[in-house]
């Protein structure tokens, strides 16, 4: 590659990497959802049960981490006024929410 092309190509690559890196980290923490059908199915039914019990919309739940036994997610009540995200852990097949701080 001629020298004059290297810097722009490098800049472009760095821009992509700056965005891709945090996304890759998130995808890594959620990898079991893609790799394990059992975890995927249990995660779906757990979230459906949790949201049904509390009257939440699924779109207000943002999964952050999934392992073989539990999920960590953020709940945001989407409104026009500023609302804090609330972080919870839930064991698969349970609907009992544990605040992340505890």
């Amino acid at each position: 590659m001629p020298r004059s092309s290297r810097l722009p190509a490098l800049f472009f690559t760095l821009v992509l990497l700056a965005v891709a890196f945090p996304l890759a980290l998130r995808a890594w923490r959620l990898q079991l959802l893609f790799l394990d059908a059992g975890v995927r199915s249990a995660a779906r039914s757990t979230l459906e049960a949790v949201t049904a019990e509390r009257g939440w919309l699924l779109s207000d739940v943002r999964l952050e981490k999934a392992d073989a036994s539990s999920l960590l997610f953020l709940y945001r009540d989407h409104r026009r006024t500023a609302v804090q995200d609330r972080c919870f852990v839930v064991r698969l097949r349970s609907t009992r929410l544990i605040p992340c701080e505890s």
């Binding site: 992509l16 965005v19 891709a20 996304l23 890759a24 998130r26 995808a27 959620l30 779109s59």
Partner: peptide, 14 residues
Amino acid sequence: PIAVAGLYALSEPL
């Protein structure tokens, strides 16, 4: 860029 956009989809199961 298409690959990075695809990676975003993987990071958001919804």
